[in-house]
Design a protein around this nucleic acid. Sequence first.
DNA 1: CTGGGGACGGGGCCC
DNA 2: GGGGCCCCGTCCCCA
Length: 497
Amino acid sequence: MANCMVFHTQIASIMEVLANAAVADICKLVDDDYAVFRLEMTQSQKENRALRRKLQLLELKVARERVLASRPSSVKILDRHRGMARGEGHLTGGHRSFVKPARHNTWRDDQPNTVDEGSGTSTQHVIVIESVDAEDAGPGVKLERSEGEDPGQSTDIQTGAAGVLPVATEDPTTTTPPRTRRSFTEVSGTPNAVLKSDTETLTVAHRGSDNRSDAERLGSLGCPPAPSSEDLPVFHQSLKTVNSCGNTDGDTLDTGGDDPSCFYATEMDPGNISVGLETQTDLSRGDWNRYSSSVYSEGCLDKKGEVIAVDKVTVKVEGDTPLTWNADETHLGEGHSQDFLDYRDSLETNPNVSSHSPLHTLRDCAPVSTSKGPYDSRSRVLFDQVLNSNDRARAQAQGGGATSGNSKEKRFLCMFCNKGFSCLQKVEIHQRVHTGVKPFSCTQCDMRFAEAGSLKRHQRVHTGEKPYSCPQCHMRFTQAGSLKRHLKVHVGERLFA
DNA sequence: CTGGGGACGGGGCCC
DNA sequence: GGGGCCCCGTCCCCA
């Protein structure tokens, strides 16, 4: 009996030893595999980074070659603070002025529309590619780019001689700077970036990193917070105007009324995008290779809507150079990055959509907004919209869409989806679908609209005006379509079977 | 079924 | 006459 017990004990101990050994072996195997796996992952990541850098350099190189091939080096590339050609306001000496269009109903004569320089922050900073003479093209490319989240660091990409100020002056007399210069905007995660130039300093703060509220930021700049400023970064184009929240003579449009029900502002959906699209070179050919990227911003708007400050910085990019894009530095998850890569591919496979589309900028800008406002919540939607619209564009191109059929009448093509429009303004309005630019803002609420008519229609919500009344009942409606739809109730038509 | 916004085409006016 | 600008109407969609 005792021997039996000893035997069992020995067996148990042996089994325990064996089990421990097996576990140890398994653990060792797992550890080894994990180490190998991590090593492979690290190597893959390194390769990815190297390939991206290579791609970046190639893009730069191609850009430089295109520039050199397309025009003499003395051509002015950068024209910041460009005034708007349309009747939507223009810049005068770095200040944004608004001129009421002659028949612009959204600006009522009795409205004290005050346009003032805003103040605040923005998530944007300017990347300048300075393309110097031919001898600089090639391996001598100097890439200066903030890789990290270094506050206050300006992120300029400069090629050629260092020390050149990254932002062109707005001095109209210096129309032909000695160097070819490219400037475009990008939103990055840089918490604070200060752009300096001969004439101005752009204080750019990253919303997501700024713990202060917008009201605090605005307040610190002497500007009351805008009702919608919570969602909107504010971009200052000039130091001269940073603290000029009060009215300035040149920028004030005071029509003397007391109904600031609406105003016209050039703003954009900050959560989506930071550029607006304005021009194209050869509209008849749908050639959008040269375009302007306008950095819209919002200034101050007090609660009463009496003081509206709008600021705008226009960064004009001319020439054929594609915007550089660094996937490494988009502050995105991998999924987003992949989406953008896919879209980039789709863009570039679309022969009618310029590869220099501001969507390259958009790709950088849209997903990095950290604001929490309603517009921000739509950023992803808008991006998907752009993606889808591009697919639609291809479908149109293949299936005899607007671009192939009546190209004579609809010769203005959307640079995002290729849809054709009869005139430039139509396509500009349409492109707001893609860019998220909503220049028309209601002063009585935070609503923004891409079209003036929509704002006007919206105003009836506040005024209570219901001009459309049913002749068969007492129902009244704010929209004609609503009345028309309602009339079907009386005639027995049902919307749904 | 209504309220309200997005999008777009048509048409008038002006240059 | 053509093009640009602007307004309006309409359809569609969603809440």
